[in-house]
Simulated assay, not measured.
Amino acid sequence: MTLSLSRIRAVNAVASGGSYAAAARALKISQPAVARHVKDLEAEFGVRLFDRKNGVLSPTPLCNELCDVAERMAEAERAATRLLTRHNTLLNGRLKIGLGNSMPGMALIAQFLKRHPGIEIAVETGSHERITRAVLTREVDIGVLPDVPADGRFRRALLARQNVVAIVHPDSPLSREAAVTCERLMAEPLIFRTRGSSTQRVVDRAFRSAGFEPSPLLTLDTRDAVYEAVVNGLGVGFMWRFGTGRTDVVHRVPVSDMQRQYEEVVFSLGDERSMLFDVFFSAVESFRTEADVILDH
């Protein structure tokens, strides 16, 4: 028994139009082809789908149930079409962006949407490890992360350069320092990120290079949790210089052992090529020329 989409479409069109001729016009196929789809389906499954009343084909109760299924299938087809075309339209396209930090990625998205308000943007946040994996598995279309290793699988564009800084409460004596060292920070309660964080990789590397193995007071899984811990006076945390647009009580203090500038990049899988991807990557270049103004705002 063969239950094809063309047969179901034909049944639905006849039920809507009341005749083979009306269905043929709606489907833009011949009248005999419509009749054949319906009659073959009835014969193969041993059912009656239409009764002829006063020259009109009226659907049987079974046919009405089948037409309900046909409508759901038609909507699924439309959804599939939207899914397949969403990366090639600026009117109702959709992109899913993965951010390791709120900034500078969120500033880039804001600028992009001002120019292309018809595009829907979905944002997923997570650790460096999580977002990289999401790009590789196509769970997100484009990632924005610092310190992304060179990888031939990725299409990349430089967004900004930044380093990791210490964040301290304004009541801390460190808030009045122009810069601090890892050695000085060993005397403070430290707040670290969990494994998979790009920030933590830089912090671990700096302390190791300085000859120290600190034991943190707290290890937290998100940048926001670290930020809130510092706001509440629990200790010294670390973040990327432009990792947030917040300008409240927390002070950013340079760490002399963490002065290396890392590239924040926008990246996607290299084989993902479409109009929408190209437009987003073009926006990165525009953003970069204005980055000093936007990020220092």
Results as ranks from 00 to 15, higher is better:
Arg133Thr: 11
Arg133His: 11
Ile109Met: 03
Ile142Met: 05
Glu124Ala: 15
His128Tyr: 06
Thr132Leu: 14
Ala122Trp: 00
Ile119Thr: 11
Leu95Gln: 06
Arg72Trp: 08
Ala110Trp: 01
Asn88Val: 02
Asn101Trp: 00
Thr137Ser: 15
Leu99Met: 07
Thr85Gly: 02
Glu124Phe: 12
Phe112Arg: 02
Ala70Met: 01
Arg82Cys: 09
Pro117Ile: 09
Glu129Gly: 00
Asp147Leu: 14
Arg94Cys: 09
Gly105Cys: 10
Ser127Gly: 13
Arg138Thr: 03
Leu90Tyr: 01
Glu139Tyr: 05
Ala80Phe: 06
Leu145Phe: 15
Arg86Cys: 12
Leu145Gly: 09
Glu71Phe: 05
Glu120Trp: 02
Arg78Ile: 00
Leu136Tyr: 06
Ala134Pro: 05
Arg82Thr: 13
Gly98Trp: 04
Lys114Asp: 04
Glu139Gln: 12
Pro104Tyr: 01
Ile97Gln: 01
Glu124Met: 15
Thr137Gln: 09
Thr85Trp: 04
Pro104Ser: 02
Ile119Gly: 09
Arg138Glu: 00
Arg78Asn: 09
Val144Gln: 03
Gln111Ala: 14
Gly143Lys: 08
Gly100Glu: 12
Arg82Glu: 15
Ala79Glu: 10
Glu129Met: 02
Ala74Tyr: 09
Arg72Asp: 15
Glu129Ile: 02
Ala74Val: 00
Arg94Ile: 00
Gln111Leu: 06
Glu129Asn: 03
Ile121His: 06
Lys114Ala: 07
Asp141Glu: 08
Leu136Ser: 07
Glu129Gln: 11
Asp147Asn: 15
